[in-house]
Amino acid sequence: MKITVIGGTGLIGSQLVSRLREAGHEVTPSSLSTGVDLLTGTGLDQALEGADTVVNVTNSPTFDEASPDFFRTTMGHLLTAGERAGVRHQVILSIVGVDQVPQLDYYRAKTLQEDLLRNGPAAYSIVRATQFFEFMDAVMSWTADDRTVRLPSTRIQPISTVDVVDALADIATDAPLNGTLDVAGPDVFALDELGRLTLSTRQDHRTVFTDEQAGMFAAVDGDVLIAGPDARLAPTHYKDWLSTPRQPA
């Protein structure tokens, strides 16, 4: 199968390209560094030539009110170019519960991206993932100083990017869902407790304070970021991942 990965040099995309190639597929990684600009459409026709499936794992450069325009423009270019190229299956990576948090600009933007795909010309699949293990440092950094980290008690169900890539690879090489698949980690945590676990394991002596107004996830109500009963649960536990040495990026 010939597959184009848009955003194929990023955190998820680079792993997905490797995973698909190991499985014997012909894969084209596409990004700004390879001459493909989704905002202008430059290079898309060449990148999609002969592709059976396109997997779009690009991300908006900002999480603010500019993000809806990014996804509106880039999805328009990708769907139009895909139709010209005869692409049979369009796949995007989204977020569990994304349509339940309209107070966040970025989540509204991702919901728009999903809607554009559903109403587009091609068969499609939407893979919604929970928050990545690898983003925990960034989440803590938003409200941290040298001695403290402030986090809300928002419940999340984090997942390793390796497990997200496995799900994307399976969906990309199968028949289109024309629907949505949730993928999530095996364990649910309160975000403040996850911060304490992370710092303790690393022997980082900063104190985590529970602050329901701290950071982006303070805007999330209830359990909307928790996967539903039909979700695909990944095998990797956060505690095991956190304790496993990894090579620097």
Rank of each mutant, 00 (worst) to 15 (best):
Val55Lys: 05
Met1His: 11
Leu38Gln: 01
Leu197Asp: 01
Arg88Phe: 00
Ile159Gly: 12
Arg128Trp: 02
Ile171Cys: 03
Thr130Ile: 09
Leu32Gln: 13
Arg232Ile: 03
Ile156Val: 15
Asp211Phe: 09
Val101Ala: 09
Asn56Ala: 09
Ser160Gln: 09
Asp204His: 08
Trp142Phe: 15
Asp174Cys: 04
Lys110Ser: 02
Phe70Tyr: 15
Val224Leu: 10
Tyr107Ala: 11
Arg118His: 08
Leu78Met: 15
Phe70Thr: 00
Phe63Arg: 11
Arg118Cys: 09
Leu104Phe: 06
Val36Glu: 06
Ile226Gln: 14
Val27Phe: 08
Leu38Ala: 13
Val139Pro: 02
Ala234Trp: 00
Phe209Lys: 02
Asp230His: 07
Ser94Lys: 06
Val54Cys: 04
Gly222Lys: 03
Asp230Pro: 00
Ala175Asn: 02
Asp240Ala: 14
Glu134Trp: 12
Arg196Lys: 14
Leu116Pro: 05
Leu117Asp: 05
Ser14Ile: 02
Pro229Ser: 12
Pro61Val: 12
Leu181Thr: 12
Thr74Asn: 01
Phe133Ala: 07
Gly41Trp: 04
Asp240Ile: 09
Asp37Thr: 10
Ala227Val: 10
Arg150Trp: 04
Leu48Phe: 12
Val27Leu: 11
Arg108Lys: 06
Ala123Glu: 14
Leu11Ala: 14
Leu38Asp: 00
Asp223Tyr: 08
Ile226Ser: 11
Gly43Met: 15
Arg246Ile: 10
Arg246Asn: 07
Asn59Ile: 05
Arg72Asn: 12
Ser31Glu: 01
Pro235Asn: 09
Val5Tyr: 03
Glu114Phe: 07
Gly7Asn: 07
Gly76Leu: 08
Pro248Ser: 07
Val91Arg: 05
Leu104His: 02
Tyr124Thr: 01
Val183Cys: 13
Ser31Gly: 13
Thr28Ala: 14
